[in-house]
């Protein structure tokens, strides 16, 4: 049996001496989808950043298709197939929309034309500087930029946070289309239903640990259980 796309084994990590994550175990198969749920401050972003190699890891292994990548810097992990849409979006404000996409370009089916076709709003704004975009447009750009990397696994950290309702639909439609192409994804979301609808499995975090695991469909059908697990 081939190893999972991504496996996290007993990972403990944090920032400097502050340990945030405690013994995290996860596995994501090729093309799989995982919803990462939990209240504010439980460590969801820290887990995403740990997958990217942007925290201080003190124990555990992170395996990419069976290969330990825990020692690799972010740029090398991305080159292996990780794509990151950070919670703060972090688009390059001093670069144009098109440059934001171009600096991330890696070989594969996703290129400028295809990103513009999926997210036409970006095509309209291609000559604008990053700082000129609305919050929703920045989110689209962060998503398009990650696609330019031609990732095998997309890490989406609260991609709907703070968006106007029309923009939520645009972003959700795009993510739905991506999930349909067999792209694996990890989606952090406060609105559990949106993430559950797009994924096969879910984990719930609390205080740096995974406290529950469930099938997304089963959880979606049982709103009372979502409230009980996440307190939301």
């Amino acid at each position: 049996m081939s190893p999972p796309l991504l496996a996290v084994e007993g990972v403990t990590a944090g920032y400097g001496r502050a340990t945030i994550l405690d013994g995290i175990d996860l596995a994501i198969p090729e093309g799989g989808g995982l919803a990462l749920l939990g209240r504010n401050g439980v460590g969801k972003t820290t887990l995403i950043r740990t997958l990217m190699g942007l925290t201080d890891r003190t124990a555990g292994r992170i395996l990419w298709r069976g290969r330990d990548v825990a020692g690799l810097p972010a740029a090398e992990r991305v080159r292996l197939g990780l794509g990151w849409v950070p919670q703060e979006r972090r688009i390059f404000r001093t670069l144009s929309v098109q440059e934001n996409l171009e600096v991330a370009a890696r070989p594969g089916p996703w290129d400028l034309a295809r990103v513009y076709a999926l997210l036409p709003r970006l095509a309209e704004r291609r000559a604008n500087q990053g700082w000129q975009l609305s919050g929703g447009e920045q989110q689209l750009l962060a998503l398009g930029r990650a696609l330019m990397l031609n990732p095998d696994l997309l890490l989406l950290d609260e991609p709907l946070e703070g968006l106007a309702p029309v923009m939520v639909d645009v972003v959700l439609d795009a993510i739905r289309e991506l999930a349909g192409t067999g792209l694996a994804l990890v989606m952090v979301e406060q609105h559990a239903a949106d993430a559950l609808e797009l994924t096969g499995h879910a984990v719930v975090m609390d205080r740096g640990r995974i406290v529950a695991r469930a099938g997304s469909a089963a959880l979606l059908a049982d709103p009372a259980r979502i409230v009980e697990l996440t307190g939301l």
């Binding site: 972090r90 991330a104 990397l149």
Partner: peptide, 17 residues
Amino acid sequence: ALVRASVEDAEMAGGVS
């Protein structure tokens, strides 16, 4: 453009390879 991106946000620059 790669240099400008890195000047603005080196961590994110790494995050886009």
